[in-house]
């Protein structure tokens, strides 16, 4: 009888584990199918093991070479100076 209990236990365990696997695999397959049908030219995010390229495979851009347009004073301001610029720009306007 104990042999039967052993084998039946294993079979019940197998039943549960295969159900779980089938559940995970079906979710994953359906998700990938959806992504591929909605975005035919879908590419996964770029992964760079050295940590220098971003999710598009592009290296970091120097912030100081980027400019924001300030709507307050109508001038282009260096992106990494923008917060400092706003402090003065908005203040001086309120005084005028």
């Amino acid at each position: 009888m104990s042999a039967t209990i052993n084998s039946v236990s294993k079979e019940i365990y197998n039943n549960i584990i295969t159900t779980v696997i089938q559940d995970i695999v079906s979710r994953e397959v359906v998700e990938q199918k959806q992504i591929k049908s909605r975005h035919p030219d879908y590419k996964p995010y770029h992964y760079d093991s050295t940590g220098t390229l971003d999710i598009l495979g592009v290296p970091k851009i120097q912030e100081s070479s980027q400019y924001f347009h300030c709507n307050n004073c109508d001038r282009d301001v260096s992106a990494n100076r923008f917060a400092a610029h706003l402090q003065r720009c908005l203040n001086s306007r309120s005084r005028n």
């Binding site: 695999v25 994953e28 199918k33």
Partner: peptide
């Protein structure tokens, strides 16, 4: 999940029976 994704990418297929057949033994 990762195994399934790899399997989908390697075989370039989203056919459930095929993927399951490859994933199930290893997952167990």
């Amino acid at each position: 999940k990762k195994l399934t994704l790899d399997e989908i990418n390697v075989n370039d297929s989203t056919k459930f029976p095929q993927i399951l057949k490859n994933v199930e033994p290893e997952a167990i």
